[in-house]
């Protein structure tokens, strides 16, 4: 189970007008794991996620998500992958229920099944009492939870979470991370989590990858990276130290 790769990329490269956003990215992510995707802003994390979803075409190299090629079977991939982008991108003049209904319809979930799933998802993320409020009145944390509800409705096998804790207060961020962790272990969802809150990443991720200026400078289990970079064997390392070490080196 732990060893089947569900996302594989091979020398994936993306250039925007002469600037290389993602440079020869080779990566494999196993089914059911939570992969921490780290790196400074503009390192190419979001671009990588967009390429895996087929929303933008790679300049060269290839990728496979659940055995499908994003350049050709984007629609099939998108029906199985939930992508929560940085700013969430919900229509702010809809209310939560309307938004989820719209998403359900686009995912061919209809009628009673859609209602059931929406009610259940809203309850799970704790938004059932505010479901008829317009999304424009939602706080950041509520929007993130609504994003998690979307993930539940789509019943995705893979989730791409792009900075889900950005701009949340520490308590809200912790609760969100916990929510993600429980849901993923319950439903065996593979998660690609990009975040700057390294202590949280350290808490829930199995493996991490550090991306700097489009290049994946290191990836693997955290203990292994700690051993390589810091030369420590026990549990005393922090991910932040590892990350800073890599960041200064590049």
């Amino acid at each position: 189970m732990e060893t089947t790769p569900i996302i594989v990329t091979c020398e994936l490269t993306k250039r925007y007008n002469g600037r290389t956003a993602v440079d020869n990215l080779t990566l494999s992510i196993n089914e059911g794991e939570i992969f921490g995707f780290l790196g400074p802003n503009g390192a190419g994390k979001t671009t990588t996620l967009l390429m895996l979803l087929g929303l933008t075409e790679p300049t060269s190299g290839s990728a496979e998500v659940m055995g499908l090629n994003p350049a050709r079977d984007a629609v099939k991939i998108k029906s199985k992958v939930a992508y929560l982008q940085e700013n969430m991108g919900f229509y702010s003049d809809l209310n939560a229920r309307q938004m989820l209904n719209f998403i359900a319809e686009l995912n061919d979930i209809k009628g009673k099944q859609a209602d059931e799933r929406i009610n259940k998802a809203l309850e799970t993320v704790g938004l059932d009492s505010e479901a008829s409020k317009k999304i424009s009145a939602y706080s950041r944390g509520m929007r993130q939870r609504l994003g998690i509800a979307e993930l539940l409705i789509k019943d995705s096998k893979i989730a791409f979470l792009d900075e889900p804790t950005l701009g949340l207060d520490p308590d809200g961020a912790n609760r969100l991370i916990e929510l993600i962790q429980t849901l993923c272990s319950e439903r065996k969802i593979t998660v690609l989590l990009s975040s700057h809150m390294l202590d949280q990443v350290q808490k829930i991720c199995n493996r991490v990858g550090i991306m700097i200026k489009g290049k994946m400078v290191a990836h693997g289990p955290m203990a292994q990276l700690a051993k390589e970079k810091l030369g420590v064997d026990n549990q005393t390392y922090s991910l932040e130290e590892i990350y800073m070490r890599y960041f200064k080196e590049s």
């Binding site: 979803l53 992508y83 982008q85 700013n87």
Partner: peptide, 14 residues
């Protein structure tokens, strides 16, 4: 600008 375009396009539609 509101970021809803990528939300819309990340749904399984052409």
């Amino acid at each position: 600008n509101e970021g809803t375009l990528s939300k819309l396009l990340s749904q399984p539609i052409y």
